[in-house]
């Protein structure tokens, strides 16, 4: 079971995760309007910017984050933005959307000029997240855990970050045990996705370069 304090952390994190999301009108634009390649590029860029702004608002709600050194806050966000973005996008692709919406989204991304070599691992990741049938609580906690990675570049006080990440890991571990009693590997599988995210993050800079050139 979760302690009262752990339950409070979980509710708080989930509420913040649900509250801070990309504005609906922007998401609608992505589905409803037709764009040429340049406008497509601009829209995806605006979405990425919005993703980062939403991520920062969510992160401010993670218990203890605001008390961290200001430059360390930036190092954590810079280091995790891409991973958190892929995690949030994975949720879009695994949710049951109205008929045809997933295809429109996938088509738009495939026609954005990003090279196939980067698109395939991205959709493989979305698929592997989909297989886990993650609950909203797991998404919110995993995002918080990703942000609070103590090994990000330029981080000065790693121990302070570890102290914030550990309780989140424990809440996720217990939550998994409660929700998936017949799948003892579920928690380990979730953490395994973080390793995949690292790989995507690693290739992201390369992907952007190829996209810009294209």
């Amino acid at each position: 079971e979760l302690s009262q304090e752990q339950q409070a952390i979980l509710s708080f994190i989930v509420e913040a995760y649900q509250k801070h999301r990309i504005p609906q009108d922007m998401a609608k634009k992505l589905l409803q309007e037709h764009f040429n390649a340049d406008e497509n590029f601009l829209l995806l860029t605006e979405m990425a910017t919005s993703h980062v702004q939403v991520l920062v608002e969510f992160t401010k709600n993670i218990p203890g984050f605001s008390a961290l050194d200001h430059e360390d806050q930036i190092a954590l966000l810079k280091g995790s933005a891409v991973e958190a973005m892929f995690l949030r996008s994975a949720q879009v692709f695994t949710r049951k959307l109205p008929h045809g919406h997933t295809e429109v989204l996938e088509d738009r991304i495939r026609k954005s000029g990003i090279s196939e070599a980067f698109i395939t691992p991205m959709f493989n990741f979305y698929k592997s997240i989909g297989e886990l049938q993650m609950m909203q609580e797991e998404h919110a906690l995993l995002t918080a855990i990703t942000i609070l990675s103590p090994d990000r570049p330029y981080l000065k006080d790693q121990q302070a970050v570890e102290r914030l990440q550990e309780p989140m890991l424990e809440v996720l571990r217990r939550f998994c045990a409660m929700q998936h009693p017949l799948e003892p590997q579920h928690f380990a599988r979730l953490l395994g996705r973080l390793t995949e995210l690292r790989t995507l993050n690693h290739h992201h800079a390369e992907m952007l370069t190829s996209w810009r050139m294209s």
Binding site: E46, V56, I74, K78
Partner: peptide, 21 residues
């Protein structure tokens, strides 16, 4: 537009609460 800003600029602005700029 925000899309011309780098990742760090967007983070710094958002941390300071200047989303409207």
């Amino acid at each position: 537009p925000a899309s011309n800003l780098g990742l760090e600029d967007i983070i710094r602005k958002a941390l300071m609460g200047n989303l409207e700029e």
